[in-house]
Design a protein around this nucleic acid. Structure first.
Lengths: 196, 196
DNA sequence: GGCGCATATGCGTCAATGTGCATATGAGGC
DNA sequence: GCCTCATATGCACATTGACGCATATGCGCC
């Protein structure tokens, strides 16, 4: 139960509804853990069944009533126990890397386009991290423990995006250099046989 | 079908049995894509059903007969089509990062132990990448397209491990600095000396 | 003779995850 | 009146993944 623990971790900050959690998983914690609202609601049900969180219905007019979830002492304990177990290093699982592994069996042009898109993507994310860092930690230091964790995470995120962006650039350059001196070949699709 | 495509990518190099693939997924491509042999055999059945690979039984004595799988032209085409689609950037999903997000609600000592274990883990992997790089690409350049892909991947892997290892070190230092000046409760200091 | 190990393939089950669809309503635009 | 957007919750189905277990055999070790 990894997503469940991520949700518990979020709820340590403040009580939230599923909807708010979904938005959180779209920004802050979502930078390193993706989950859509369906997953989150499903997991919330489980966590409630286990007594780790407690829902309080807030009646609203004009909108559907909402369920604000709060960590129970049991939930807090469960989170602590989970966090005390050794973590398992996750593997990357990035499509792009698999493609590079089979570089000589795939078409280069779409790969190039993909690399360019990814370059932009990772640059955007890097800029986003830097923006948040400057806003939340203008002097680069953290006060409390909670802040320290987030500062470290933001720095890691920024560096990671920077590194992947650099990688995309390098890969693009290497591809250009290679197609300059070797098997470019593309566009041989006008067959002499078919047209006439 | 992501694992399936990773398998197809592996089979572009040479025909392999499920067993060999499992070993491959334990080393080279396994650096960025984990899969155990059960998953691989299941996926191989699917790929065979779809006509993307073809199994040839090799009778052996002393060992169970083996099934050597070869890419079919259809499989090659499928791989090219898959590789021509834009890739989806994967999210990190690392337990350790979730724990840091909830830093003020968890126990620090197990986290510290975890960070130290992870530091060693990522250093080992970094050393491993560097070793392979020196062995396969002593002068840091690649000849063909296949080599280029692998060179890029190895470099990315090395840098990634280096970065995460650095991160672990930093986090450990920050935790020490913090526990020096703030809340963190040592286990049981009946001796209350300190500086006075 | 029994034990573990490497080789070699595979099934069954359950948890985790991904994708699509369903429901409910007020606000604002066409 | 109809459509879309934002809010707010949730089910159903399929895929993927993790884990245990089963089968078969030769080899070296004790």
């Amino acid at each position: 139960m990894a997503l469940g623990d991520a949700i518990l971790a979020c709820l340590t900050e403040r009580p939230m509804t599923g909807y708010e959690l979904a938005k959180t998983f779209d920004s802050s914690i979502g930078f390193f853990w993706k989950a859509d609202h369906q997953q989150i609601y499903r997991e919330l049900s489980k966590l409630r069944d286990r007594g780790y969180i407690q829902g309080r219905e807030v009646v609203q007019s004009g909108k559907p009533n909402k369920l604000v979830y709060t960590l129970t002492p049991e939930g807090r304990t469960a989170l602590r126990h989970w966090a005390a177990r050794p973590s398992t290093p996750a593997s990357t699982k990035d499509d792009l890397l698999v493609r590079l592994h089979a570089l000589d069996s795939i078409d280069i042009e779409p790969l190039r386009a993909d690399l360019m898109a990814r370059l932009e993507h990772h640059r955007d994310r890097h800029a986003n991290y830097e923006r948040i860092l400057k806003k939340r930690f203008p002097d680069g230091t953290a006060e409390g423990k909670l802040d320290l964790g987030n500062l470290l995470l933001l720095r890691l995120g920024a560096r990671h995006e920077q590194m992947v962006a650099d990688f995309c650039e390098e890969a693009l350059e290497a591809l250009s250099a290679m197609s300059g001196k070797a098997t470019v070949v593309p566009l041989e699709d006008s067959k002499r046989e078919g047209k006439g």
